[in-house]
Design a protein around this nucleic acid. Structure first.
Lengths: 368, 368
DNA sequence: CTGAAAGCGCTTACAG
DNA sequence: CTGAAAGCGCTTACAG
């Protein structure tokens, strides 16, 4: 048996901890049974009729004792506790990608609060020791009714285990590798990317370079798909259009050479590392080119920091906040969903918002 | 009775949930009792001696059944749950003050992960309806072993109730109003503020204006205290030194008048609203003054955004991340602390880091 | 060395 | 309208 209540703990003042009140304490105070307390406080889903006076006494006792239900017990007994998990696959909150992470969190938090859900933050690995591979890490999420997953390095096997057990979860970000029944909320990169190319075409650009990273992320694949689709639609040369890079080989010379070939617009993508983006902007600057006078420049996704020289770069923004919101909404639907009812769309894409910016302009004469 | 296993739930795929194996299933398979299974799998903290053969049989059965312990039940049965709460007194995560909030969260999350604690995020009010005054809102935190409080508008009464019950909590940010036994981790504004004044004095400045907000926050009081102490120490005129404002009355004319009076340096403070800071920087710009050529400028606390014209403003940074870390450490000490052992320092101040910046320079001639 | 039993704090049929 | 009882899946003294 466990020693249980009244034990140490030593609260803030070093004072002896007072045990939290439970339903049985309320029952004693109100002179009713613990069952009745549960009925009164638990929302009374079964529609049981209770005497007004009983209700009042129970509520008063609960109030004066400062009662708060134990969500762990609630969940063990009922399979619900109105808590949602948010699991990130990194040792800590990504400091580097603060700009991309925070808005998601804001959206998640907003919608969770709106839906009366608390949020439990889990991290992939605890301390330096255990890696994200630790199976126990992912398993912990089961304390919540359902969980949001967010991040690059996904322990597929662990997640599949959860899926097999019917545990509700939603990915933030598109996932290919897990099949078509895996719920996610992603950004709709394809049309947004095509639209950027279309804008360039409308301004007279015919030769473009799309500088993307060597990355297999669905986001990168989608953007390339959109760029190619837009190019084909608008009669932009797709030959040599896509350039893969780790950043190191995008130099001022290369950019000048493109200009000499008649390239008038450059497009790149935003990622965690910003390798392609910073290499390209650096090369454009080093080449002494002005945007959009000498060459137009666009980025697929948000620029890295508002402080940089390219703070007003054209392109589109990723609807991170809305993705967070939608992911929560979907997760709650999965958690509360009646198995008989039609399921909500499991895989959702949120439109990206075009950013006019100041780095796109009419195509200059083909050769400088 | 609850329907329990195998029930609906309808996981991500809407597939029927498969019942997870539990200790009793393993027990049956291995021909031992459920207690023994718990002993074998549960780390065996009590140091009970078990037959090797029994262990092996249990482990094999667990493996072949794909057993994963139910963290909910584990936590209910053991006294602690290794969850820490983080309660913020605002409807949602502060979007405006993302820059000041996020680093704290990073620190909290880092240290919590390092100490094997999960994090529950609570917000003061859920949705638009309930205000932070809602007693139930604060009460919810009791589900965690202890809680961090963060934000300006603090429902003192609710917190005192927690304190009385011996519930462990720690404030992030200094708190005067709650007495000397209230645990907090704050920024050490006084010496950092004095140091900024000292730097100005060393550069020859003798007449200074400190433009602060009309705010009773401990942070504001501390900064003023530090400014005054530094001024007295360095022989800077304290007469008219401190200027309180809501932002509206800091104009280009006023700044020019100060210059005419011989003021060569301006100091302001960072707050949630940034009212004083943005008013002052706006007025300096409008007055056509260059920093530090015409006037030196410093801010007590971080500048608002890296993108602004004053991204390189001199002053100091608030050690938000370290505050988050320390707060978690203190809280865990309070939660796990042996009441017999000496308590850790309940009120801790973390040093601020000086930021050289580019807006402080030698004092120009007293009159322009 | 192992098992029967109580208990963690709830929910939910079921019987008064 | 209310209460006694079983149960969620574990942990932990305690008794063999």
């Amino acid at each position: 048996m466990v020693s249980g209540r009244g034990g140490g703990g030593g609260g803030p003042g070093g004072r002896t901890a007072q045990a939290r009140p439970r339903q049985s304490d309320i029952a004693r105070a109100a002179g009713v049974s613990q069952t009745t307390v549960s009925l009164v406080l638990g929302g009374n889903k079964a529609g049981v009729v209770l005497a007004e006076d009983t209700k009042r006494r129970v509520l008063e006792a609960a109030e004066s004792l400062g009662y708060a239900p134990d969500p762990v017990a609630t969940r063990l007994a009922s399979a619900r506790n109105d808590m949602l998990g948010l699991f990130t696959f990194s040792a800590t909150f990504p400091t580097e990608v603060a700009h991309s992470y925070y808005p998601v969190l804001v959206g998640v938090e907003e919608e969770a609060a709106a839906l009366g859900q608390d949020l439990i933050l889990f991290t992939g690995s605890s301390g330096a020791a255990s890696r994200a591979a630790d199976p126990a890490a992912v398993r912990r999420v089961r304390v919540a009714d359902g969980c949001l997953f967010f991040g690059r390095h996904v322990p597929t096997e662990q997640i599949e285990r959860l899926a097999r057990d019917g545990y509700p979860f939603v990915y933030i970000g598109r996932r290919d590798e897990l099949g078509e029944r895996v719920p996610y909320v992603g950004a709709d990169y394809v049309p947004a990317s095509a639209e950027v190319v279309r804008r360039l075409a409308d301004l007279g650009h015919r030769r473009v370079r799309y500088v993307r990273e060597n990355d297999d992320a669905p986001a990168s694949a989608d953007r390339e798909r959109g760029v190619l689709a837009g190019a084909r639609e608008c009669g932009i040369d797709t030959d040599g259009l896509v350039v893969r890079t780790d950043g190191s080989d995008i130099t001022a010379e290369r950019v000048r050479a493109w200009r000499a070939e008649g390239v008038t617009a450059l497009v790149t993508e935003e990622t965690d590392t910003a390798a392609a983006l910073s290499a390209l902007t650096g090369a454009v600057e080093a080449a002494g080119l002005d945007c959009p006078r000498d060459v137009s420049l666009a980025v697929l996704g948000d620029p890295p920091a508002s402080g940089s020289a390219f703070a007003h770069i054209s392109g589109f923004t990723v609807p991170r906040r809305e993705m967070g919101r939608r992911a929560v909404r979907l997760l709650v639907e999965l958690v509360t969903g009646d198995p008989g009812l039609p399921a909500p769309p499991l895989q959702q894409l949120v439109p990206c918002e075009p950013v006019p910016g100041r780095t796109i302009g009419p195509a200059p004469s083909p050769a400088p």
